[in-house]
């Protein structure tokens, strides 16, 4: 609503115009390359529909891109699927030009969590949409007075972030379960299950730790566990809020580390499953 205050401004900058003398373009470029590489790799991996689990040497490794595994693709028996092989009704609905990939059934949830994350929003608005390219650097001329921000459609939907948080918390539990299961190895001869440690176990363990640091430091989580109150008192609620605030201070670092590691975990399992790498058994 108009405040009726006349603010005549001296100038409007053009795209990329700035008096900054530092390498202001490096940060958005690195973000563009980092996020772009992850999007390309994760999309490719999600559409593969194979090589997402590894059972060599009795291991039980499952790629985080495919966890939770609701249904196995036709003809596959990974031992991780909740409901067995993909049913015919699901396959009949599946687009004929796409290979059946169970990752496509679940990846929208963690993907949506990252897409609506407050840190990533600021980062990709700069790197992908030049909105702005960096602080005190000019924007594309067409946007000027037509800027809508997150106040109007379509970006008003970023407010759905907390719902993706609820899903991300469930994924955190599921990926922690996968990490625990990676320490269970089946003896190929006796078929008995026992404790063991492979390099893959460590890779799958680091994944939920880093995701936990990212998810539990989320701004929405911090708000829900105490930030919404004006009086926190001094009890457990205050401790939880302080803990989330502590993680939140390094939210960007957790975001990047967890992003890299979840991609690397899929890559590790994929390389083992394809036979390019062999999983070294520590114990």
């Amino acid at each position: 609503m108009s405040r009726g205050i006349d603010v005549r401004l001296p100038q409007v900058r053009k795209l990329g115009e700035t008096s900054r003398t530092d390498a202001w373009w490096v940060q958005p470029l690195l973000t563009f390359l980092g996020l772009g590489a992850f999007i390309v790799y994760s999309t490719w991996a999600a559409f593969q529909g194979k090589n997402f689990s590894y059972d060599g040497g009795g291991a039980h490794y499952l790629s985080p891109f495919y966890s939770p595994l609701l249904w196995d693709p036709p003809g596959m028996h990974t031992g991780h699927a909740w409901f067995g092989e993909a049913p015919s009704w699901l396959l009949s609905m599946w687009p004929s030009f796409l290979v059946f990939s169970p990752a496509l059934l679940i990846l929208w949830a963690p993907g949506g969590f990252r897409f609506t994350c407050y840190y990533y929003r600021g980062a990709y608005y700069k790197a992908f949409w030049a909105d702005p390219m960096n602080c005190s650097v000019g924007e594309p001329g067409f946007r000027q007075e037509n800027y809508r921000g997150e106040k109007k459609l379509p970006l008003i939907f970023q407010n759905v972030h907390r719902y993706f948080l609820y899903l991300a918390l469930m994924f955190l539990v599921l990926l922690a379960y996968d990490a625990v299961m990676s320490y269970v190895f089946t003896n190929p001869d006796t078929k008995q299950k026992g404790f063991g440690i492979g390099v893959g176990s460590l890779v799958l363990t680091i994944n939920p730790i880093l995701l936990g640091g990212y998810t539990l430091g989320c701004h929405s989580f911090r708000h829900l566990i105490g930030g919404r109150k004006d009086e926190l008192g001094g009890g457990a609620g205050k401790k939880a809020y302080d803990c989330a605030s502590c993680l939140n201070r390094s939210h960007m670092l957790w975001a990047w580390m967890s992003l890299f590691w979840v991609g690397f975990t899929d890559f590790y399992v994929r390389m083992c499953a394809m036979g390019y790498w062999s999983d070294f058994r520590i114990l």
Binding site: M1, Y118, R121, G122, C135, R148, G149, E150, K151, K152
Partner: peptide, 18 residues
């Protein structure tokens, strides 16, 4: 929401940096 236009902020964090 309506008068201060909080939704226009797209979290560039430039304010924090300066």
């Amino acid at each position: 929401k309506d008068e201060e236009g909080l939704g226009y902020c797209n979290i560039t964090k430039c304010c924090t940096k300066v």
